[in-house]
Amino acid sequence: MSVQPVALIPAQAVPGATAALYTAPAGVIARIDSLGVCNVGAVPASVTLYLVPSGSVAGPATATTFGQTVLPGQTWNSPNEIGRVLQPGDAIVAQASASGALTISAGGLLVTVS
């Protein structure tokens, strides 16, 4: 077994449509240690985050943060996903209220399982 700190989601734009931004690979368990969203736009925008089990879809049952408003120039560090564990095939899924207004990044640990 090996444990590696990694950027689960390198800084990138949050899409305006629901999209998987990270999926835990086969043979790996991922723990989320940090997740931040920055508003790089000129108006408030909101983000919805989902932790989706393998084989499921993003929806109300998998939402962990729903419609969190981030003001222009603000960075919001989510407490809702910290410490959560993703099994192989599980995904971090996100959607912004306005495409191009928000960026997201997340870090964590990858544990290789045998």
Rank of each mutant, 00 (worst) to 15 (best):
A101R: 01
T23C: 04
L49N: 01
A63H: 01
P44N: 04
A24G: 02
A96E: 03
L102W: 00
A17G: 10
G100H: 07
A61N: 12
L109N: 03
T64G: 03
S97L: 08
L49F: 06
A19I: 07
V14C: 11
G59V: 07
Q74A: 14
V43F: 05
G108N: 04
P25K: 06
G73K: 05
V85P: 05
L51K: 13
S78T: 15
G36T: 14
N77A: 10
A96H: 04
E81S: 10
P10N: 14
N39K: 07
G16I: 11
V6P: 06
Q68W: 01
P72T: 00
S2G: 13
S97D: 11
S78E: 00
R31T: 15
P5Q: 15
A7S: 14
I32M: 12
L86G: 06
M1T: 14
L49I: 15
P72Y: 01
A45V: 01
P15Q: 09
S78F: 05
V52Y: 03
V93N: 01
I82H: 06
G59M: 08
T103F: 02
S105C: 06
V111L: 14
Q4W: 07
V52Q: 07
Y50T: 01
A98M: 03
S97C: 02
P60C: 01
A11M: 12
T75A: 10
A24W: 02
R84I: 06
Q95L: 02
Q95Y: 00
M1V: 15
C38R: 12
L109E: 11
T75W: 04
T112S: 15
T112I: 10
A61H: 02
G107V: 05
G27T: 13
S46R: 07
N39T: 08
G16D: 11
G55M: 08
Y50D: 02
G107W: 02
P25M: 08
S97I: 03
P25C: 05
A11E: 15
V28L: 11
E81K: 00
Y50S: 07
A7R: 11
A24Q: 08
I82A: 10
N77D: 09
V57I: 13
I82C: 03
S46V: 01
L102G: 01
N80L: 13
I9S: 06
P5N: 14
L71S: 04
V57M: 03
T65W: 00
I29R: 15
P60K: 00
Q95I: 12
T75Y: 04
A63L: 01
I32K: 04
V93K: 02
V47C: 09
L109F: 09
D90S: 14
T48D: 07
V3Y: 11
S114F: 13
A19R: 14
G89E: 09
P44C: 01
S99K: 06
P60I: 04
T112Y: 12
A30Q: 12
R31S: 11
G41H: 03
A98I: 13
A13I: 11
V70A: 02
V57E: 05
A30M: 05
R84S: 12
S97A: 08
M1Q: 12
Q4F: 11
V111R: 10
I29V: 15
C38M: 09
V47L: 09
I104T: 02
A26K: 13
S105W: 09
G83S: 15
